[in-house]
Simulated assay, not measured.
Amino acid sequence: MKTLVLEEPGKFNYTDTPFDTTLQPDEALLKVHRIGICGTDYHAYSGNQPFFSYPRILGHELGVEVLEVGSAVDHVKVGDKCSVEPYQNAQLDHAVRRGFTNCGENISVFGVHQDGGMREYIKMPAKYLHKSATLDYDALALVEPLGIGCHAVNRARVQADDTVLVVGAGPIGLATVQFATATGARTVVMDVNEDRLKFAKTVLPIDGTVVAARDETLAQLRAQFDGDLPTVVFDATGNRHSMSKALEYAAPAGRIVFIGLFQGDFSFHDPYFHKKELTLMASRNALPSDFKQIIRMMEEGKIDTRAWITHRSSFENMVDEFERWLKPESQVIKAVVSL
């Protein structure tokens, strides 16, 4: 079986690996057709992904075909096209028992903590498959990254009368924008990269943009909301300085949601936090219900991800392309690999 292994930071290796097709009653055998490349993959390649070990087969944004199912599987069948929910919990710990499968104490993310989908075939418990009768493999591979934004918006309970600022116009920020605008909330995007802001205005129905890292940033932000500050701020940068600014950007009684992960300690001025009576949240991964919501919205035409895929590669050529995708001048929004 053709397999691509990240042996160590900066070193991919194409190889043939044995594969046991024997299924447990609850499992499905899958053919991988599309692999989306995300920030986690880039970080792992660069050697700065937390909770990670080498060697590892990457790949958790997947569009797959069901080839065979175990005797106990009844919600998917041979030939179904599916998206993969990569957040697996072998233990029913306290969080999982309460329904928080996205942040179980013993969670194992497919393609991160365990070997993933950069290979021809995989098998897994079928409960992690979400099928669609109409979506193609490109769209199905993008359901997982959309799930990060979807979960964040659902967690913040954004309503139509909210005003929303999304900081960071990368894939996760854009996914967050997608679901914030779907609620009817007035939504503005902030980034230091003006090209990404232009892209956001082209592909999404946003209400405005703000260029960060300028003296007039706060004034620009208030101008977007008729003199007010946003009631909900999502930070998708994972940048400590950007995250600290979120307290300044949020309106009194507002909510702040950190989606991006910063590898270090984060602090803020507590009196300022209390003065505004802010609510601070983290958002991690996505829930099964988020996957179902996204697929339904995509099938209904409420989400169109075609413009998101800016770069493509075959599986055989991916290693050569990967180095280029890491460079800011490549202007990658989402790269997709075909098998």
Rank of each mutant, 00 (worst) to 15 (best):
K2A: 05
T3N: 12
V5D: 04
V5L: 11
P9Y: 04
G10E: 07
K11G: 01
D16W: 09
T17W: 09
F19S: 07
D20W: 07
T21M: 05
P25W: 11
L30V: 07
L30Y: 05
K31E: 14
V32L: 13
H33D: 09
I37G: 01
G39P: 04
S46R: 15
Q49L: 15
F52H: 15
F52P: 01
H60D: 10
E61G: 02
E61R: 02
L62Q: 08
L62A: 09
G63S: 10
V64M: 09
E65P: 06
L67V: 05
G70L: 06
S71C: 00
S71Q: 12
H75L: 01
K77A: 14
A90G: 11
D93Y: 09
H94V: 15
R97A: 15
G99E: 10
F100R: 12
F100W: 14
C103N: 11
E105W: 09
S108L: 14
F110V: 03
F110A: 01
G111V: 04
V112L: 13
H113V: 02
Q114C: 09
Q114S: 11
E120R: 12
Y121E: 09
P125D: 13
A133L: 13
D136T: 05
A141P: 03
E144Q: 08
C150N: 12
A152V: 03
V153P: 00
A156Y: 05
R157V: 03
Q159F: 02
Q159S: 13
D161P: 00
V164D: 02
V164R: 02
V167S: 11
P171F: 04
L174S: 01
L174D: 03
A175K: 00
A182R: 14
A185F: 07
R186G: 00
R186I: 10
T187M: 05
M190C: 14
N193T: 08
D195K: 14
L197K: 08
A200N: 06
P205D: 12
P205K: 13
P205L: 12
P205C: 13
G208S: 10
G208E: 08
E216R: 02
L218M: 15
Q224D: 06
G227E: 12
P230A: 10
P230D: 13
D235Y: 08
N239E: 09
R240V: 15
M243K: 07
S244L: 14
S244N: 13
Y249T: 10
P252A: 11
A253E: 14
G254A: 07
F258E: 01
I259C: 01
G260T: 03
Q263V: 09
H269K: 10
P271E: 09
H274S: 10
H274I: 02
K276V: 02
L278P: 05
S283T: 07
P288R: 05
S289P: 03
F291V: 07
Q293W: 09
I294T: 05
R296F: 12
G301F: 08
D304F: 06
D304V: 10
T305Q: 01
R306W: 02
A307C: 06
T310Y: 06
S313N: 09
N317Y: 01
V319T: 15
E321A: 14
E323W: 01
E323I: 12
W325P: 03
L326S: 08
I333W: 02
A335C: 05
A335I: 03
S338D: 11
